[in-house]
Design a protein around this nucleic acid. Structure first.
Ligand SMILES: [Zn+2]
Ligand SMILES: [Zn+2]
Ligand SMILES: [Zn+2]
Ligand SMILES: [Zn+2]
Lengths: 169, 169
DNA sequence: AGCTGAACGTAATGCTATAACAAATCCTTG
DNA sequence: CAAGGATTTGTTATAGCATTACGTTCAGCT
């Protein structure tokens, strides 16, 4: 197992112009590789759901995904979307954003992680940031109160560099 | 204005046996004082809503609060609860927990703050922890990606000291 | 008393999520 | 290949969370 130090391709990429075709196909490839290792199946609905999430760096609501799936011939009932999304999340291929009640594709699915999320309030794009140092401090603060942290939600709302440069308030 | 350094009474109190009567009446007093300063009105529905939240250290869903209010002669439609809760939150007397879609009374309403929340998965109690150091690290991590954090949600799920001592898994 | 804006109440609706069950599909194993 | 079991997909129905719209009441002021 060569699980080397986590090296995100570029946490800020989501906010900058980039070769998104490459960006998303790399994520899809990594996802397939990961599922192969896990012995889980990337069925058509699941694959399509992941592709839909990967089209943008935004988070999408389950019903938004569902509309897309239904339009493409898949089932049109909520569980169709929720099941696919739940599968992706539980296999580390997507993340759920609590603040938004929405889902975003994971851009580093090869690595097991619970990132901190950076959500731009102007362009709605979402990026993943290294959460380890944040979690460490949080665990310390909690430990001072005798509390043992098992999972933590860390989601930041603010302004990305591109939007700030464009003079968004 | 003697807004001295923030000195939480005891962040872990929520998880420990304590004089809750004093605990909640102090919070209510502080809330009244704060609203007086702000020139906002603590009407009967609002006051009762705060009292209901203060009865326990758990977070309550809006409909749970609404049931209580309705049973006591207030309106029985969702906006009644949502408006009161929204008022409390926006005036710093209660917090909203994103993970739980629920609300909890603030225990230090005298001080303007966005705490980190510690949510015990065993007893469901919620405590507020000092978030400043956590936010500082988060801001740094975000800044490295060119992102400016404006607001952050920090919610930890885990096990409180009391539950851990009782041998909860 | 009369005006005005805040607060309250209700009806209606929309959005998010899950439970329960039936049909189809995959996968193993004899 | 056939039989059987587990997984996946689909549907119906329902639960849970939240807001819009609109009319009425009430505190505070002139
Ligand atoms: Zn991209
Ligand atoms: Zn942006
Ligand atoms: Zn207490
Ligand atoms: Zn506990």
């Amino acid at each position: 197992m060569s699980d080397r130090l986590y090296q995100p391709s570029d946490p800020a990429a989501a906010f900058q112009p980039h070769d998104h075709r490459h960006c998303s196909s790399a994520a899809l490839d990594a996802a397939e590789a990961r599922l192969a290792r896990q012995g889980a199946r990337l069925t058509p609905v699941r694959r399509r759901t992941l592709e839909i999430l990967l089209e943008s760096h935004r988070a999408m609501g389950a019903y938004e995904v569902l509309d897309r799936l239904a339009a493409e011939g898949f089932g049109r009932q909520p569980p169709v979307a929720y099941r696919a999304l739940e599968f992706l999340v539980s296999h580390g291929l997507a993340h759920r954003l609590q603040r938004l009640n929405a889902f975003a594709a994971c851009l580093n699915p090869g690595h097991d992680h619970n990132p901190a999320f950076l959500i731009c309030r102007s362009c709605d794009r979402v990026a993943e940031a290294e959460a380890a140092p944040v979690r460490a401090v949080l665990s310390d603060v909690a430990a001072a109160a005798g509390f043992r942290v098992e999972r933590a939600t860390i989601e930041a709302l603010g302004l990305c560099a591109s939007c700030a440069a464009e003079g968004a308030a």
